[in-house]
Simulated assay, not measured.
Amino acid sequence: MAGDSDRIHPSAFIDPAARLAPDVRVGAFTLIGADVEIGEGCVIGPHCSITGPTRIGRDNHFIGHAAIGGDPQDKKYQGERTELVIGDRNIVREFVTISRGTVTGSGVTRIGNDNWLLAYTHVAHDCLIGSHCVFSNNSTLAGHVEVGDWVITSGFAGVHQFCRIGAHAFLGMGVLISGDVPPYTMVATEAQGRPRGINSEGLKRRGFDAARISAIKRAYRTLYVAGLPLAEARLQLEEQARDSADVRALLDFIESGERPLLR
């Protein structure tokens, strides 16, 4: 495998125990360790390190200088076997770091499909990331963060450990997230991130019609504008959810959380 200079640069090191699909391309000075699986169509750029146990799906592109599957940055970690699982068609830009899980968490860090992780993004141990997300430059996820589908984080956004970011949410530049962000919500920066409406433009681009967006806006006003205690807001959302699957998804997110809701 390593002798095929058309696909594998001669300066790359691939552990004999690694398993690469026959068409995987590997750039100069890249290291791929044991217990790493890389699927068909993947391109691993120069100066990357991929250590295991790590499972990578097909058609992913690691541009260069990425550190993938490293030990979790957790003082409790004692070398236990934990994993990183990456899906298909993800773009991983320069100097991205993604850690494996921990045994005190789920044991796995998991990334879905069709995500963009731009330069210097950090995904810590035990994070669970959906699909179709964009993490702009210097986005940072602490350990155990959960991110739904179609989430966008702007540059220098940071998310505290154990927080959840609901589907279709948008985090503005430099926001610091210390609570759960409901689906569809836009968060803008202050000393801490604060909700500032719904991500209506993103929803339009993804095919949400006017009626669906109107129902989500009404739910947002109930939760954030009406000045209601959370318990009363949840009762009103329960009524609204009878006519809207999107509001039902929002309410289910709120009711399943362990951390405080960002309000």
Rank of each mutant, 00 (worst) to 15 (best):
G39F: 01
G179M: 02
Y184T: 12
I198A: 01
P260A: 12
N199G: 04
T82P: 00
A169E: 03
A21M: 14
F62P: 01
E80F: 03
R25L: 09
C42H: 09
R196F: 07
N60G: 13
G105M: 05
G148D: 08
C127Q: 07
P46I: 02
T30G: 12
K204V: 03
F208K: 04
Y120E: 04
M186W: 00
V36R: 00
F253K: 04
A233D: 08
G69A: 09
R25D: 05
P22E: 07
G227W: 04
A21R: 14
S11W: 03
A169R: 00
W116N: 15
I177G: 00
G105D: 08
M173Q: 14
T54E: 04
T102E: 11
L235K: 14
C163I: 01
F62R: 01
G174F: 14
Y77R: 11
S178K: 10
R263A: 08
S244V: 05
D35G: 14
Y224D: 12
G64M: 10
I14A: 02
E146T: 13
H65T: 14
I91F: 15
S244F: 03
D149T: 00
G172A: 11
A142E: 15
F135L: 13
A167H: 13
P229E: 10
R259S: 06
L20R: 08
R234G: 09
K75Q: 13
A67I: 14
E239H: 07
M173Y: 14
L20F: 07
G227Q: 15
L223Q: 12
G45W: 01
I44T: 10
G179Q: 11
G45C: 11
C42E: 12
D252M: 07
E190Q: 08
H47I: 06
Q236P: 05
V181L: 10
R221Q: 10
T189S: 01
G57S: 05
V24K: 03
H122E: 10
F62K: 01
L118E: 06
R7I: 08
T185Q: 08
Y220G: 04
D88S: 07
G3P: 02
G197P: 03
T30I: 11
D243S: 12
A124E: 05
Y184K: 06
S49Y: 06
T121V: 15
V96M: 06
G101K: 07
T54M: 03
D35W: 08
Y224S: 04
D149V: 04
T185A: 09
S131G: 11
Y77N: 10
T153S: 11
K75F: 14
N137M: 11
L20M: 12
I91A: 08
I63L: 12
N115H: 15
V134Y: 03
F95W: 12
R7M: 02
R263L: 15
A2Y: 01
I213N: 12
G70P: 09
V175W: 02
F29Y: 15
R263H: 13
A245K: 07
I91H: 12
Q236Y: 04
I68T: 11
L237F: 00
V247C: 02
W150N: 02
L141A: 05
H144S: 10
L31D: 04
A18L: 02
S200A: 15
A18K: 04
I14E: 00
G112Q: 00
T222L: 04
R194H: 09
S244T: 10
I129W: 04
A215L: 10
P183T: 10
A18F: 08
Q236M: 12
V187D: 02
